[in-house]
Design a protein around this nucleic acid. Structure first.
Lengths: 195, 195
DNA sequence: TGACGATCTTAACTTGGGTTAAGAATATAG
DNA sequence: CTATATTCTTAACCCAAGTTAAGATCGTCA
């Protein structure tokens, strides 16, 4: 499959974008490769693009003023959308950094073109709504992980639900995502060997 | 001001709903009072109504299978929307309970009527989008509170940003919302006296 | 393959929340 | 205005995560 076909297929799966609707969007998608550590969007920048990950893993992280260290907020991997959602929909500066953690390839579309598509087709309107719901679910899941689960439970769920991320990301980044320090994650892993 | 005028004003503030658009919706709004402890929506029920709180405080909470105790997820108070958002937009059973914590008064609208309004007016379409954004912000803020702040910081921010809630809710419910036990909140409060 | 840098684990100690149960303070109703 | 229920605080003990620094392991590239 060509990259365009992959995108077509994925958009159809995600939001029922049909061949005609995809045709409308075809001229707008651009391709970009990211080096490891390259930013998708930076702190204080307005996010103008919505990206579809063909390959690679991205993370968005927060830099704490006091503690000065990075806290991972979201991971995004292959066949997922990468976007600084709030910044993108409100076109306001972002509070986070979003960077590529590996060599990555992305197809992306500009917000103006997306807005244009919203007006042209119900399929794309539905896509917009589903991206909104996805963003909400992402945020809500994150809140629930912290409100209802222990670090150990969060760790197990990550391995279960996102082995692709677990297998491609250093443990100290996993720890940060789980809301704990690297030594704590080591202890959790050690404790679990007995089970 | 009559209750309808209050609603009209609030909808205009929130989403720029103009007089004509409000007129369209007027026949659909219903009024209901809730006794303390009465449910707005229950676990496993599909949330069919979006409510506007004229007076009172609501909470949504989660019941943990293991620990068996309630965990407060959101508070909603006067002049805010109360709705089990995910259940409402997807019309699927809710994972939470949402109940009134005080005597409350609500104006509510059925999802079918709201969908009807979306088709009839751009003002109402915008309203729908803004409710979606509000829900996202609520969830994202909650995630951020847990990812980036200590329990003490969360406590201070709650007092700062939501004194109305702080003043109308027992401390053990605040503790649950902050993700800690009541004795821990007492310790935090004691620690803070010195500052 | 050998050396360097990156990553992961471990140890020792500190800190803060969890748990349980008792008691103090506050509200509420009779 | 007392009795009762509700809410809040305190105490004592436990346990998990934070912190810091050292050492082990792993990868990579010259």
């Amino acid at each position: 499959m060509t990259e365009t076909q992959i995108l077509n297929y994925a958009l159809n799966q995600f939001a029922g974008i049909d061949a005609d609707a995809f045709e409308l969007s075809a001229p707008y998608w651009q391709r970009k490769t990211y080096a490891k550590g390259e930013f998708y969007n930076e702190y204080k920048n307005v996010c103008k693009y919505l990206g579809f990950i063909l390959d690679g893993v991205f993370r968005t992280y927060y830099i704490d003023d006091d503690s000065a260290d990075e806290k991972n907020v979201f991971f995004y991997s292959k066949n997922q959308v990468v976007v600084a959602y709030k910044s993108f929909v409100t076109q306001t500066p972002c509070s986070y950094y979003t960077e590529s953690m590996t060599e990555s390839t992305v197809l992306y579309i500009h917000i103006n073109h997306l807005n244009e598509l919203y007006g042209k087709s119900h399929d794309w309107e539905r896509f917009g709504r589903l991206v909104a719901e996805t963003a909400f679910n992402l945020a809500m899941n994150r809140a629930e992980q912290f409100m209802f689960r222990t670090p150990e439970q969060r760790y197990l769920e990550l391995i279960q639900n996102h082995p692709d991320i677990f297998n491609n990301v250093p443990l100290y980044h996993i720890a940060s995502y789980l809301g704990i320090q690297a030594p704590s994650l080591s202890r959790i892993r050690k404790r679990m060997v007995g089970k």
